[in-house]
Amino acid sequence: MKEHIQNFIVVTIAYLVAFALTTAVIAPIQSIYLSAVPPAISLLFLPHGVRILAAYFFGWHSILYLIPSGYLTHFLWIETQGVDLDLTAPMVSIIASYIGVKLISLIPSIGFRDFNMSAWKWLLLAGFLGSIFNGLGHGLLQNEFSLSTQILGYAIGDVSGQFALMIALIYYFRYIQKSV
C-alpha cells in the first residue's frame, strides 16, 4: 500500500508540474509565435510524457494513479479555456496512453525489460500510438473527426512533449548526480 501511495504522489506531482509548464509557459509562447495553431492544441504537451512513462513503469496501476490529476487538470482547462469537453475525456487520454504502451510491450523482442533495443525509441512509438488512440477517442466523444487537428495536432504535440520531457529527465539525472 505504501508503495502505491508513493507512486501515486510521484505521478500526480509530475503530471501537475508538466501541465502547469504546458499551460503557463509553453502555451503563451505558442500563442505569440505560432498564433495560427488553434489554442486547444499544444505543440509541446508535456503531460502526455508523464502518462506514457507512468504506463511504462506502473502498468495498469498508472490508470488509477493518473485519474485525480487528470480530472483536476481537465476541470482547470475547462475553466480557463471556456471549452466544453466530455466528462470522460481524461479517462480516454489515460487509457489511450496505457494501450499505446501495452501494444508496444506485446512485441516479444522489445519487452519491458530489454534495454538493448533503445527502449526510449519504442516508448516514443508507444507515445505516438497512444496519441493516435487519444485523438480517435476524442473524435468519437465530440462526434467529429478532423485529421489535421484531432489526429495530427495531438500526435505532434504529444510526441514532442514526451520527447521534451525525456530530455528534461536526462538533465535532471545529470543535475542530481553532480549535486550528490
Binding site: 512513462l53 533503445s118 527502449a119 526510449w120 529527465l169 536526462i170 539525472f173
Partner: peptide, 9 residues
C-alpha cells in the same frame, strides 16, 4: 530502470 532508459537516450 528509468536511469537506464535516459542513459541510453
Amino acid at each position: 530502470k528509468l536511469k537506464l532508459l535516459v542513459t541510453r537516450m
